[in-house]
Amino acid sequence: MTAIAARLTRPGFAAGGALALLFVVSLVVGVGDVSLSRLTHDPEAWRLVFASRLPRTLAAVLAGAGLAVAGLVMQALARNRFVEPTTAGTDQSAAAGVLLMTLLWPSSSLPVKTAGAAAAALAGTSVFLAVAHRLPPNQPFLVPLFGLIYGAVLGSAAMFVAWQADLIQFFEIWTRGEFSGVLRGRYELLWLSAAMVALAWWAADRLTILSLGRDVSIGLGLDYQAMMRLGLVIVSVVSALTVVVVGMIPFVGLVAPNLVTRALGDDLRRAAPWTAFVGAALTLGCDILGRIVRYPYEIPVGTILGAVGAALFLWLLFGRRA
């Protein structure tokens, strides 16, 4: 046990150090000078940090960690390595949900809208899982394929409604992940996704058993349906939160868990914390990248991750076979 602990702590320190470094870089980089030298004497710089940079950085870390763990849970539920909330209709359903809330109760508060989004995400993901479990298990690529197209169909239906209702601007905000609008007081809901990560960690053993299939789960005395629901709630709430607060961020939930489970295996108890780490670092890193590629303009993190994540996805698909 101690040998394993020793083996784990060194990369643990490395990862913690890397994330901390990204965190500091994220505080300093961007429009508006917050260089370290200025921080020593200028209170204005500190104001900028607390009002904008720190919330933005925290939002990226929370959203990244949440989405990565949601992806890990999703993969256990679907028993398929290549699914995640944006490729299973979850995010698209959440966007449709918040759209409906905006249409029907325009004056409802952000938490209420988020609840609506979560409910829609729950429904949309349940449909996906019901179909995914009926697809033949010997064709593992069928499930993500179905999920991608299912998400696209849901997304275009929602977009059609948004178009008709002249809400297309809002819809773009929900569907394109972006941290530039994050300010103090406008991201705090995202802390709930940290709670969801904790929930996944708490149920890690049972979620791992769930990934072994229905028969094994029942054989080991698990309440299969209840665990399925718990997993769905984790995935849906995280998705809804990110969609409402910062917008869709693709591929984090796919790439981070795959990178981690490749090295550590599918035991969620072991993989979940690392997945959260990698997801947070990936999201934060891409956000920083988006800030410097076309300085002083910003490129949304969703756009960056769409490219980076899709490339990594292809690598995951073919890397193993080579």
């Binding site: 064709q139 991608l148 693709p250 303009y297 490129i299 698909l317």
Partner: peptide, 27 residues
């Protein structure tokens, strides 16, 4: 199914790269 999936993902990659380039050209 692998061919289909990689095609779909390739499409996502190319579309994302396009919009990335579009933003770099004219933010």
């Amino acid at each position: 199914t692998l061919m289909l999936l990689s095609g779909v993902v390739l499409g996502v990659l190319l579309r994302s790269l396009s919009s990335l380039l579009a933003r770099v050209i004219d933010p």
